[in-house]
Nucleic acid binder design. Structure first.
Lengths: 140, 140
DNA sequence: GTAAGTGCAAAGACTTTGCCCTTGC
DNA sequence: GCAAGGGCAAAGTCTTTGCACTTAC
């Protein structure tokens, strides 16, 4: 039912010159179910093709981010993390005990934020919600 | 009516050894109405006392953050920004055209986030909401 | 063929740290 | 007095960039 995001096709549609490196990086991100950082993307890409440098990963992620093909996150650990731009917006819960990141969507939250911005005289162009939390015990 | 946050007193209450440097930095932050970065805190501190090094500002901010006396923000420009820990939690709207940062409080938003976390099996310990927006035209 | 892309290493931006001197309590 | 704090400069981490070589179209 769910279809994997084909980042390579999106790159081509945007008119990007498709080098082997970009193809490989696109494949890595399309397959990723997590939010890898540059180092991790490079590691995974190198498994498929060792001719990829860190600099190229940096350049490619900046490029894809500008084109809106990937989302950049800063979860507070100092390095940028990425994911292929999802079809629908979502936010993140970060488990502060394990570092695990869970995605969620809440339409009510989306609407409320737009309302808050408008109430203050702004038009929302983007937003970021990060919930830092711990797992609930059964008895809580 | 509104009372300025006296960070120096809070530092003393936490048992911090009050050096001239810490006193000066605390005063800078207590007076700040914005979200200065390390460089800016250092610049303002140096106006009051030139014997303050950047390293001390870094060390002091890390210390005060750990004690919960200041909040650290990463607004996506690569450097950390700080504010004296406010009495009440608030969130931020970032004007993407001017870089201006506006604070706001919305109880409904606070409640909703807690509910979302609980629905997913988590207990919220902290959260971060950043709305990136532009000013509304009159006719929008 | 030619402009765009890449690898490599150097350089940048921000932050931390080792060492020795200074200072609060 | 003595351990905690600070100044300074070196080092660390993440990211960008200049240059010469390679490659997609």
């Amino acid at each position: 039912m769910e279809e994997a995001i084909d980042l390579e096709t999106l790159c081509q549609q945007k008119g990007l010159r498709m080098t082997d490196q970009r193809r490989t990086i696109a494949a890595v991100l399309s397959k990723a179910k997590d939010h890898p950082d540059i180092e991790e993307i490079h590691r995974r890409a190198a498994l498929r093709d060792s001719r990829i440098s860190l600099a190229t990963v940096y350049r490619t992620m900046n490029l894809m981010e500008e084109l809106g093909l990937v989302d950049r996150h800063e979860f507070g650990d100092g390095r940028a993390r990425f994911e292929a731009a999802p079809d629908a917006h979502h936010d993140h819960i970060i488990n502060v005990e394990t570092g695990e990141i869970v995605e969620f969507v809440d339409p009510e939250l989306e609407i409320l934020q737009r309302q808050i911005a408008e109430r203050l005289g702004y038009r929302l162009v983007d937003h970021r919600v990060e919930l830092f939390a711990v797992r609930l015990n059964q008895d809580e």
